[in-house]
Design a protein around this nucleic acid. Structure first.
Length: 397
DNA sequence: AAATCGGGGTC
DNA sequence: GACCCAGATTT
């Protein structure tokens, strides 16, 4: 196990006492250097124009596992629609989800909404201001609590996100696997020691900004780094090897059949159950595929058995692939058109969870739905007819 | 400790 | 295609 030996030996190279000395040095000069760099080089972002805890909170929830550039337009739309926590608490979850569509991790929207209702009902619309109280709220963990407490309330508490992890492991040349909980504990402890007692919010944003724009995962821009003189990784040329992380697992592959049923120009959508993937979002009726390659016959049987609709003909579309971090979906889509008025349905039981409701809509934009549903609607509109038995067409795609 | 939860940016 | 993203929660 050469890998293990390597890690062991490098760990002994950086003893705790040695790290303590380096830490003391960082403690002294890191905050001021980062803050002055930040004040001169920060990006102008909408949530930096305010100290409103509500706005800071919304931005931090959106920024979880989501890049800044992606969040900006969502944040602006969200704040125009719900300028204060009261407007947010007053609307149904469905409305909030419709703003969230495309951003991913939809449970964030549900928890944000629950959180808003709690704050309005029990706290008279006032935000908790301490890390401990914030962490008690749904969807607010240690990172988000630290961010809101420091940025909105000036508390001297740290944050630890992907950016900070990268910066700290490099500054201190920490060779431990960052996927290990023990490493997380170590890094939080280091972050606690480094956060200054004054301007913690600015310092926290500065160290994250450094990670996002200079201390990049690959090919960091060390020549532009304001703290390159303090960096152990740079001294030892370890920038490209830190942080150490176990490789991600291959995503699971799933095959589904989605049926697009059009009746008198209306499309049938079903509402997914709360919890799980695409919680409470709408989609075309979707079912686990019995085989890798679904046929029209499969589609007709599913429509009959699961939806109680007898259909004479369908056309095949796709397949469409949809990639998530830990899943790969292959959608085989079947489209059917009926002249009759939209039939009333008994709520069907799908094999991937019970649908909650159904609706006939002119366009999927009328309900909150995931990106794949929009992709499917586009494919239907484009009228791309690709049958699974037509290798020429498949090959040309 | 590992899995789950999205979708897009980036090289 | 691989890796990453201002993580939280559940199992």
């Amino acid at each position: 196990m050469p890998n293990k030996d390597l890690q062991k030996s490098s760990r002994t190279t950086f003893s705790p006492t040695m790290r303590g000395k380096k830490l003391a040095l960082l403690q002294k000069s890191l905050p001021n250097r980062l803050i002055s760099w930040f004040l001169a080089h920060q990006r102008q972002l909408p949530w930096r124009q305010t100290t409103d805890p509500y706005a800071i909170w919304v931005s931090e929830i959106m920024l979880q596992q989501t890049q800044v550039a992606t969040v900006v337009p969502y944040f602006s739309r969200f704040m125009s629609r719900y300028p204060t926590v009261h407007e947010l608490a007053a609307v149904p979850l469905e409305d909030v989800l419709s703003i969230w569509v495309g951003l991913g991790y939809y449970s964030r929207a549900a928890r944000l909404h629950r959180c808003a209702q709690f704050i309005c009902t029990y706290l008279n619309g006032r935000f908790p201001s301490t890390r401990t109280e914030l962490m008690a709220l749904p969807g607010i963990g240690r990172y988000t609590a630290g961010a809101v407490a420091s940025i909105a309330f000036g508390q001297s508490v740290p944050v630890l996100d992907g950016n900070v992890i990268r910066v700290l492991t490099r500054l201190l040349a920490i060779p431990d696997n960052i996927a290990a909980p023990a490493t997380h504990t170590l890094l939080w402890a280091i972050a606690e020691k480094l956060v200054p007692s004054a301007d913690a919010g600015t310092y926290n944003q500065a160290i994250m900004e450094l990670g996002a724009t200079v201390c990049l995962p690959r090919h960091p821009l060390c020549s532009r780094c304001p703290v390159r003189g303090l960096c152990q990784a740079r001294r030892r040329s370890l920038q490209s090897t830190l942080p150490v992380k176990t490789a991600a697992r291959q995503p699971r592959k799933s095959f589904c059949i989605a049926v697009v049923i059009e009746a008198a120009g209306k499309l049938l959508l079903l509402k997914r159950p709360p919890g799980g993937l695409w919680s409470s979002l709408w989609e075309f009726p979707t079912f686990h595929a019995p085989t890798r390659r679904s046929t029209e016959k499969h589609a007709l049987r599913i429509m009959e058995r699961s939806l109680g609709l007898s259909v004479s003909a369908v056309r095949a579309i796709g397949p469409l692939r949809h990639q998530l971090t830990h899943r790969t979906f292959e959608y085989h889509i079947f489209h059917t058109r009926m002249d009759a008025a939209p039939p009333h349905l008994l709520l069907p039981a799908s094999d991937c969870g019970r649908y909650q409701d159904f609706a006939w809509v002119d366009t999927v934009a009328q309900r909150p739905c995931g990106t794949i549903t929009r992709k499917i609607e586009q494919a239907i509109k484009a009228g791309s007819v690709v049958t699974a038995r037509d290798p020429n067409v498949l090959a040309s795609r």
